[in-house]
Simulated scan of single mutants.
Amino acid sequence: MSGRLSVDVAIIGGGLAGSSAALALRGMGISVALFDKGFCGAQASGVNYGGVRRQGRPPEQLPLAARAAGVWTRLRGLIGIDGEYERSGHLKLAQTEADMAALEAYAETVSGYGLDLQLMGGAALRKRFPWIGDGMVGGSYCPSDGHANPRLVATAFPAAARRAGAQVFEQTAVVGVTRQADGFWLETATNLRVRAGIVLNTAGAWAAPFAESFGEPLPLSRIYPSMIVTEPLPPLMDVNIGMEGGAIYARQVARGNCVIGGERGLVLADPDFSRPSSDGARAIMNRAARFFPALQHAHAIRFWTGTEGATPDKNPIIGFSTTTPGLIHAFGFTGAGFQITPGVGEVLAELVRDGHSPTPITAFSPARFRPARSPASPGLTGAQDQNNQQKSEQREGFPS
Score class of each variant (00 low, 15 high):
Leu75Ser: 02
Leu64Glu: 04
Gly3Pro: 04
Leu380Asn: 06
Leu233Ala: 08
Asp313Gly: 09
Ile11Met: 12
Pro358Gln: 05
Leu117Met: 10
Thr178Ser: 09
Pro150Asp: 13
His356Val: 15
Ser321Tyr: 03
Val194Phe: 00
Arg282Asn: 12
Ile318Gly: 06
Leu186Phe: 03
Ala298Ile: 05
Thr155Trp: 00
Ile30Met: 04
Trp72Asn: 02
Tyr224Ile: 11
Gly382Met: 07
Gly242Ser: 10
Phe39Ser: 13
Gly83Leu: 06
Pro325His: 09
Gly15Phe: 13
Thr230Ala: 10
Gly337Lys: 02
Ser321Phe: 09
Val174Gly: 02
Leu5Gly: 09
Arg368Met: 03
His356Trp: 13
Gln386Asn: 10
Gly70Tyr: 01
Gly309Ala: 09
Glu86Val: 14
Gly261Met: 00
Asn201Ile: 11
Lys391Trp: 12
Pro342Lys: 06
Pro130Thr: 12
Pro375Val: 14
Val267Ala: 15
Ile260Gly: 01
Pro316Lys: 01
Arg264Thr: 14
Glu393His: 11
His297Leu: 11
Gln394Gly: 07
Lys314Arg: 14
Tyr141Asp: 06
Ala124Asn: 12
Val52Met: 12
Pro271Ser: 14
Gly397Tyr: 02
Ala101Glu: 12
Ile30Arg: 00
Arg368Tyr: 00
Gly70Phe: 04
Phe333Lys: 02
Val71His: 05
Pro225Gln: 00
Gly280Phe: 01
Tyr49Phe: 15
Thr359Ile: 15
Gly41Met: 07
Ile79His: 00
Pro217Met: 10
Ser213Trp: 01
Gly345Lys: 00
Val347Asn: 05
Ile81Arg: 07
Val253Asn: 06
Tyr224Ala: 09
Tyr224Arg: 08
Val253Tyr: 01
Glu86Lys: 12
Gly51Arg: 05
Ala124Arg: 10
Tyr224Glu: 06
Ala102Ser: 13
Val253Ile: 14
Val47Met: 14
Gly215Asn: 09
Ala22Cys: 08
Val52Pro: 02
Ile81Gln: 08
Leu119Lys: 06
Gln167Cys: 10
Gln384Gly: 10
Gly262Ala: 08
Ala159Glu: 13
Pro217Leu: 07
Ala160Pro: 00
Asn48Ile: 09
Arg395Lys: 12
Ala66Lys: 07
Ala156Cys: 03
Asn257Cys: 14
Asp270Glu: 11
Met285Arg: 05
Leu295Tyr: 04
Gly114Trp: 08
Ile30Trp: 00
Glu231Arg: 01
Ala159Met: 10
Gln390Lys: 08
Gly133Tyr: 05
Val177His: 02
Arg275Glu: 15
Arg193Met: 14
Arg151Cys: 07
Leu115His: 05
Leu192Pro: 00
Pro130Asp: 11
Ile318Ala: 11
Val7Pro: 00
Thr305Lys: 05
Ala102Pro: 00
Arg370Asp: 14
Gln390Asp: 15
Phe303Glu: 12
Val174Ala: 01
Gly29Trp: 06
Ser392Trp: 08
Pro234Lys: 04
Gln61Asp: 11
Ala159Arg: 10
Gly319Lys: 02
Ala161Asp: 07
Tyr49Asn: 11
Arg67Thr: 13
Gly337Ala: 11
Thr178Met: 07
Thr341Ile: 07
Ala181Gly: 04
Ala372Phe: 06
Ile340Ala: 06
Ala68Trp: 00
